[in-house]
């Protein structure tokens, strides 16, 4: 059961990595990085279940938070830089 879940997580990691490398647009890449972060959270939870150490779940929670912050920062940067490139626009 755990092995099947592990293989599934690793395969989806590989697919997300491929999308992050190939992704033609920026949004593909951002989505792929976000999805890879989610897969990392799942991976850590699986390792915690395999090794039998519940304290690894704290690290999984931390990853979920960091993933969220990272994606917010990327989108915010994209928004700000896109506005400054095209037109002055209203203040954020």
């Amino acid at each position: 059961m755990l092995a099947a879940a592990g293989i599934a997580v690793l395969v989806s990691m590989a697919l997300a990595l491929a999308r992050a490398l190939l992704g033609p647009t920026l949004y593909d890449r951002i989505l792929a990085v976000n999805m890879f972060g989610t897969k990392t959270v799942l991976f850590i939870a699986l390792v915690a279940a395999l090794v039998g150490r519940g304290d690894y779940l704290d690290i999984a929670l931390l990853y979920a938070l960091i993933n969220f912050i990272g994606v917010i920062a990327l989108l915010r940067y994209h928004e700000v830089s896109g506005v400054s490139e095209s037109k002055p626009g209203p203040p954020p």
Binding site: L17, A20, L21, L26, R29, I30, V33, F36, G37, T40, F43, I44, Y63, G70, L74, Y77, H78
Partner: peptide, 16 residues
């Protein structure tokens, strides 16, 4: 920007 995103991704992998 792509390089920055991929750097974060590689950091996730090495943390695993």
């Amino acid at each position: 920007l792509t390089a920055v995103m991929l750097t974060g991704l590689s950091s996730l992998i090495s943390a695993c």
